[in-house]
């Protein structure tokens, strides 16, 4: 199959998304799947991506299409520290800025982890972390849609642990 030929991906909610083969190969999970599948029997059939919603898969593929000419980054070796980013390239900054929805951002992060797209995973991790920085616990709960289920005693214990870890102490 030529790299510019189109394949169809089917998300968890049965939404079908068209993508170039070259873009799909940015996803190590799908790339491996395509290598082992019998091309004659699967030609034209949608590839199921049942762990990812259509909304997230669409954004992931949009990112992969833009980066399809990039060298596929090797999946990180165990024990090797992940690269610490300080900023994103301009296109990627705009890509994430346009997402707007924080739930979708987390979905993209989880999808890039599942589909093994190291660079997108690294970028989405960076964006989520940037969004969390400087927020109070209450603000983080609101941002992440998390309800506080800690008892006052449990919260006090965590406060004590945190106090011993603070750099200014």
């Amino acid at each position: 199959m030529a790299d510019n030929s189109m394949v169809t991906l089917m998300a968890a909610d049965h939404i079908e998304i068209q993508a170039t083969l070259q873009a799909v190969k940015q996803c190590a999970t799908l790339g491996t799947m395509l290598e082992v599948l019998d091309e004659q029997q699967t030609l034209g059939l949608p590839i199921p991506v049942l762990e990812v919603s259509g909304e997230a898969l669409k954004k992931v593929i949009e990112w992969c299409e833009y980066h399809r000419e990039d060298m596929v980054v090797e999946t990180e070796q165990p024990g090797v520290a992940a690269q610490i980013l300080t900023s994103l390239p301009q296109w990627d900054t705009e890509f994430f800025a346009n997402i707007g929805d924080k739930d979708l951002l987390i979905k993209i992060c989880n999808a890039s982890n599942f589909l093994e797209i190291p660079l997108l995973l690294q970028y989405s991790i960076f964006v989520i972390a940037q969004a969390l920085r400087g927020k109070s616990t209450e603000e983080m709960r609101a941002f992440l849609n998390i309800e506080n289920d800690l008892t006052p005693e449990e919260e006090q214990k965590i406060r004590e642990d945190n106090a011993w870890a603070m750099p200014q102490n």
């Binding site: 610490i84 991790i125 960076f126 972390a129 940037q130 969390l132 920085r133 400087g134 927020k135 109070s136 616990t137 983080m140 709960r141 992440l144 998390i146 309800e147 506080n148 289920d149 800690l150 919260e155 965590i158 406060r159 642990d161 945190n162 870890a165 603070m166 750099p167």
Partner: peptide, 14 residues
Amino acid sequence: YLTTPDYGHLRRTC
């Protein structure tokens, strides 16, 4: 990517 105070805040969310 978080500072220690931010990390501490995240631990207290739930």
